[in-house]
Design a protein around this nucleic acid. Structure first.
Length: 482
RNA sequence: GGCCCCAUCGUCUAGUGGUCUAGGACACCAGCCUCUCACGUUGGAGACACGGGUUCGACUCCCGUUGGGGCUACCA
């Protein structure tokens, strides 16, 4: 094969960009990159009433977030109207299409009747051979479909799929408002954009015979088709809002890393032996149509979460910090104006302590709050349990040792703690939990030596002293209330 | 309803007629590790939808049933 492979992703901007669409985009993109072909982005906005600019913005933002880049486009079908009209006029002139004067109401009426009689609702060809054209009535254009014989769709995944042309009818290619319809524009676009492989969702398979007939009517060679099975929700129905977040950007906002999303999505319908983790470079190298599965897949958020935690665990600190910042801001842990002095390097420094205990960036942001907060709030139950008078001597001893300690690395901190536990004859846990509470306000945090070391001498001593004051104050209050 | 597609653990999947007492991953359960939470680690439970063929032999091939999905618009 030395032809240049050209594929496209052609979403309609009628809602958010969802998981299924992204998977289709990803497969097209990988196919193009693997074969050093071209990946084209085309916005299918012929449904003017439902298409929105906001949706187009989201599509672009979503693909960009995932680093799925395109070589041509984004093209918008509404900007290509002249091309479609030329094609329609040609079909009209060649007698391969005709004007249809039936109104939507009449059609709806006929459909209902057919359904009531238990028949297949098909256009009856009323206007196909009109002798006199009614004047002054609005008209649409229909394609003269061949209703004899079969149309065979050669699908790269499923092999030959045979459709009986009796099932087809004359489809509308130009609406009465002058806007061409999807099944027509998709053919004209794919043909004129020289698309070699149409990789799209399974939901388009049934429309493919109509499109194949259009290719032939227009005198174009059809591309090769590959219909991907759909992604379903946990109840095996079509993925929708009912299944929680389906917009790709909402996963970004929930603290997912783009590489986790890509890795998760690619394994929905594609596999490479037993391998689960793939870098983008590896995917481009290894992706092939042979390893695409035929059955539909159920979207499983747990596995996505696992992959996310994997990429968080293994990510570079600075890289993670750059993705973490928006969440620190959103969670109110950092504020744009107040904390502008904090550098990304400072943020990156605390990340290793959080990597293996964060499944999402939001978790990581929340777990990092005590590094940045000036005043920490004590967890109520934790304080009750661990900030008790008996710990005061230990805190005092620690403060003393910290003040005298020259180095503050985890090794010397460990020595200080071992020293105390041995002298006092207590387990580390008895000391670590109260210290953790005093330093982080929480009962759960990174390793205590990491916390101390990261916080630094001054803040540690200050927070321990604050802990002691807190114990003394609540002691007085308790005595007072007796 | 008609037409089309699909069918291996709960989920994603490996498997292309014998190597399958069916492999991996997520989730789940138990043990170990341990300063909390995690990570890690060891082990466990868990599937070829059903019925007919074809074949010396079917998870693998064919047919049917069942189940799921899609299409059936002047939506895409």
């Amino acid at each position: 094969m030395n032809e240049i492979i050209r594929v496209r992703f052609a979403p309609s901007p009628t809602g958010y960009l969802h998981i299924g669409g992204v998977r289709t985009a990803l497969f097209n993109w990988l196919f193009a990159r693997h074969h050093k072909g071209r990946f084209i982005l085309r916005i299918e906005d012929t449904d003017i009433s439902r298409s929105t600019d906001e949706s187009i913005k989201q599509i672009i933002e979503g693909l960009t977030w995932l680093s799925i880049d395109w070589d041509e486009g984004p093209f918008r079908q509404t900007e290509r109207r002249d091309i479609y009209i030329q094609h329609i006029e040609r079909l009209l002139k060649e007698g391969k299409a005709y004007r249809c004067y039936c109104t939507p109401d009449e059609l709806e009426q006929k459909r209902k009747e057919a359904l009531a009689k238990g028949e297949k609702p098909k256009y009856d060809g009323h206007c196909r051979n009109l002798d006199t054209l009614p004047a002054g009535r609005p008209w649409a254009v229909r394609f003269k479909t061949s209703m004899e014989g079969n149309t065979i769709v050669e699908d790269l995944l499923r092999g030959k799929v045979v459709f009986d042309n009796k099932e087809l009818d004359d489809l509308i290619i130009l609406r009465s408002d002058g806007i061409p319809t999807y099944n027509f524009v998709v053919v004209v676009d794919d043909a004129t954009m020289k698309i070699t492989h149409v990789i799209r969702g399974d939901d388009h398979l049934s429309n493919t015979p109509r499109q194949v007939q259009l290719y032939h009517g227009l005198g174009y060679q059809p591309p090769r088709f590959l219909h991907l099975s759909m992604i379903l929700g946990s109840d095996k129905t079509r993925l929708s809002k009912r299944h929680g977040a389906t917009s790709i950007l909402s996963y970004r906002d929930m603290g997912y890393l783009p590489e986790a999303m890509v890795n998760y999505l690619v394994r929905l319908g594609w596999s490479y032996g037993d391998q689960e983790i793939f870098s983008k470079e590896e995917l481009i190298e290894k992706f092939s149509i042979e390893n695409i599965g035929k059955s539909s897949a159920v979207f499983n958020p747990e596995k996505l979460l696992w992959l996310n935690s994997h990429y968080i665990k293994n990510g570079d600190s600075l890289y993670l910090a750059s993705h973490l910042i928006p969440h620190l801001l959103k969670e109110g842990i950092l504020s744009e104006n107040k904390d502008s002095g904090i550098s990304i390097k400072e943020i990156a420094k605390v990340i290793p302590s959080l990597q293996e205990r964060s499944k999402t960036l939001i978790e990581m942001a929340k777990g990092a709050d005590f590094f940045f907060d000036k005043e920490i709030q004590y967890d109520e139950n934790g304080a009750k349990r661990f900030l008790t008078p008996s710990i005061i001597p230990i805190f005092e001893k620690l403060i003393d040792m910290f003040e005298r300690s020259e180095s503050f690395d985890t090794d010397s901190l460990k020595r200080i703690f071992t020293d105390i536990t041995e002298k006092e004859g207590v387990e580390l846990g008895k000391i670590a939990q109260p210290v953790r509470l005093a330093l982080t306000g929480k009962t759960v945090s990174p390793g205590i030596f990491d916390v101390i070391s990261l916080l630094g001498q001054d803040r540690v001593i200050e927070r321990l002293k604050k802990g002691i004051r807190y114990i003394q104050i609540s002691l007085k209050r308790d005595l007072g209330s007796i």
